[in-house]
Amino acid sequence: MKKLINNPEEVVSEMLEGFVLAHPKQVKLVPNTSVIVRADSPIQGKVGLVSGGGSGHEPSHGGFVGTGMLDGAVAGEVFTSPTPDQVYEAIKAVDGGKGVLLIIKNYTGDVLNFEMAAELAEADGIKVAKVVVNDDVAVENSTYTTGRRGIAGTVFVHKIAGALAETGASLEEVEAVANKVIQNVRSMGMALTPCTIPAAGKPGFSIGDNEMEIGMGIHGEPGIERGEIKTADEVTSVLLKKVLDDLQPTQDEKVAVMINGLGATPLMELYILNKKVSDLLKERNIDVYETFVGEYMTSLEMAGCSITLLKLDNHLTELLDAKANTVAFKR
């Protein structure tokens, strides 16, 4: 394991300290928790937005705390959902009287822990709503199982719900627009190399020197196909096809695109992928409104990528365009 760390058991707390030390004007740590909130939290008269999950996906979610996006982010252990007490602290720290929306990625652990926290907060009289993001089309949707995973598309939920909350909208309105994003966002990823949870000390899985895995989850959950490594164009075609088949945008619709790096993939490669994404969407007469390329939802030092499409109507477009000022997302 080659990592710039001190103690594998302390990576999350040291990271959080280093984070608030780097950005004291924007964020603060709720004392004795693993909760990052805006420096000016709680904001009275604004719906509070809280997200979070296991650590190791940086800049998610602490990097998206700030004006126009999240109010709070809860960091669990690496790849492990945060506990209810921590989520509960986040809810209390950001509640400005208008209620709090929890943005949860669809993993059993996240759902259970956030639900229990919501119950605790509701018992305190705080209004809480929850949305569950399930953008990953790699794993089939089925009503009998857990459903799809939540991955990079979550960042669009933060952005758009955050923009609406900033206007003073009600909890119901913010929840509704978050659900609208969730209904219109789809992603799929792939990995070239594994990653190592610091406390585990060795990679969670292995991928042959000549292999890649299509559909790999952001915690290293097995994907849908292990095969020989393909070209950037071929990988893009496979991922984008699955996303498009599921999302089914029509010719006159416009989309936002996110090409997300999982941690070790150079920007150079992400832009090479984007060339093909752009070509393929042009072929289908789908209008790309805006493209985001970079690291938004990572998996430690995994090499690989995910591609996300979000269908936009005028309302979503306006909210996507709105000002945001967070550590990892500014406009």
Binding site: G54, S81, T83, T108, L112, M116
Partner: peptide, 12 residues
């Protein structure tokens, strides 16, 4: 357990 485990197994 609730405050130290996390994941799916913590709440369970």
């Amino acid at each position: 357990l609730l405050s130290k485990v996390g994941g799916a197994s913590g709440p369970l």
